[in-house]
């Protein structure tokens, strides 16, 4: 069987904690990262809330899984697209989100930004280009 690299897009549209989708998506991404594919993450609508910094779940007795997003770089997930319009509608800016990076081994582990802000039109093109879209 020939190895075909496919372009997988994980589409995240739900806020964390209120439903299980955000955590489920993250787990699938981490598991799927074992299968050398071209992986991108898209955060649209309430999905952008998953990336807010300073999450503290001590008061609600749930596992705080926001630190796990910082591990995505280790799992070779380097393309995280966040929709600008979704941030705007929620009164958020890039500064409200975690600073996610990946390390470039070829450049002495230089840290590079994983998050890229894109417009709704650009996001539509990213979705069009994907071979497979996993929706959460």
């Amino acid at each position: 069987m020939s190895e075909t690299i496919k372009n997988f897009l994980y589409l995240n549209r739900k806020a964390p904690y209120g439903t299980i989708y955000a955590w489920e998506s993250l787990e699938v991404v981490l598991i799927g990262a074992a299968f050398d594919q071209d992986v991108s993450l898209a955060f649209v609508d309430d999905g952008v809330y998953q990336l807010t910094k300073g999450q503290d779940t001590a008061g609600i007795g749930m596992k705080n899984f926001s630190p796990t997003y910082a591990a995505l770089g280790d799992y070779e997930v380097k393309k995280i697209f966040v929709e600008q319009e979704s941030l705007d509608e929620r009164g958020l800016t890039l500064d409200d989100l975690q600073h996610l990076v990946w390390e470039d081994e070829d450049e002495d582990y230089a840290e590079k930004d994983s998050i890229k802000l894109v417009s709704r039109a650009e996001m539509a093109a990213i979705m069009d280009d994907a071979d497979v879209v996993f929706s959460f």
Binding site: L30, A33, T68, A71, D74, Y75, Y109
Partner: peptide
Amino acid sequence: EEYQIAPAVRVLTKAVGK
């Protein structure tokens, strides 16, 4: 402690090398 997950083996391998 930092990431709230146990790393996959290939992630661990790379990190140990570093």
